[in-house]
């Protein structure tokens, strides 16, 4: 299976503090892969280096074989990488559908256009994306009044507008109710299956991770300590020790219970 993303020896240090220390991994095409680890393990830093918010101190990032290390965020996006954030950053002064239309205008390179009425552009297309995440009924509400879980779904719709090859989701279900979490990740899993998008996501909720991820990576103190199938990672003694404190909570039978 060929890889959509390959990361080689990625490193980030701030004034001597090493946040991410020589991480290498790959994401296969059509895969739903989780990156887990305790708070401060370096997950978000990793993501920010992949999508150009931060420049890596060392190491390289390849997207489908092309070296995209240190490229600007907007260039990485143009290359077909979608991104959602841990803390959502939608446009508060626009309606839900306008947020999606904005992404479509960017995708169709209409940003400097001064003539057409913006809210008429790509409205039908935007509706379809909202429909994918079950937000169509809220299309014309102002973004500022949305519930948090709805914002997360809107963010997903926005990230899908340029038909990304790779989608990076930073804690997609944080702050959501448990039932909504499962629903959202089921949605992501369906999108992976239907559209062939590859997804890399970070997550704290192990129910979500084990229910949906094809493969799991574990990051601890900036170093990758495991990378494998769900079963492999679950039975990895180092993961149990370092990440879960060696507790018994995490035996296979518990997870299925």
């Amino acid at each position: 299976m060929s890889e959509i993303l390959r990361v080689e020896n990625l490193k980030k240090s701030y004034d001597g503090f090493v946040a991410v220390n020589g991480v290498s991994f790959g994401v296969a095409k059509g895969e739903l892969k989780a990156l887990i680890g305790p708070n401060g393990a370096g997950k978000s830093t990793c993501f920010n280096m992949l999508t150009g918010q931060h420049r890596p101190t060392e190491g390289e990032v390849f997207l489908d074989g092309e070296n995209i290390t240190g490229r600007k965020t907007r260039d990485v996006w143009r290359k077909g990488v979608g991104r959602t954030f841990q803390i959502t950053g939608t446009y508060q002064s626009m309606t839900v559908i306008e947020n999606v239309q904005m992404a479509l205008m960017s995708h169709h390179r209409k940003l400097f256009s001064m003539m057409p009425r913006a809210w008429k552009l790509y409205r039908d297309e935007a509706f379809e994306f909202l429909d994918t995440v079950a937000m169509a009924d809220q299309a014309d509400r102002p973004c500022s009044v949305l519930a948090y879980g709805d914002l997360k779904r809107l963010e997903l719709a926005i990230a899908l507008t340029h038909r990304p090859r790779l989608l990076l989701m930073d804690e997609p279900t944080a702050g959501m109710a448990p039932s909504a979490r499962i629903e959202l990740m089921q949605l992501v899993a369906d999108i992976v299956k239907d559209q062939g998008v590859s997804v890399l996501f970070t997550e704290h909720d192990m129910d979500v991770v084990f229910a949906h991820a094809h493969h799991i990576m574990v990051l601890n103190r900036g170093e990758l300590i495991a990378d494998g199938s769900v079963t492999e990672v679950r039975n990895n003694p180092q993961v149990q020790e370092v990440y879960l404190g060696g507790g018994t909570l995490f035996k296979e039978e518990d997870a299925h219970a």
Binding site: Q53, R74, T90, Y91, Q101, M102, M105, L111, A118
Partner: peptide, 28 residues
Amino acid sequence: RHVIHAPFGYALRAGRDSPRQAEAMGID
């Protein structure tokens, strides 16, 4: 006023509302 209602005006507002999100959807 017309420009404000056009894509250019929207992109300008996007950059004001959330520069990070704007950059993350290809807006310079």
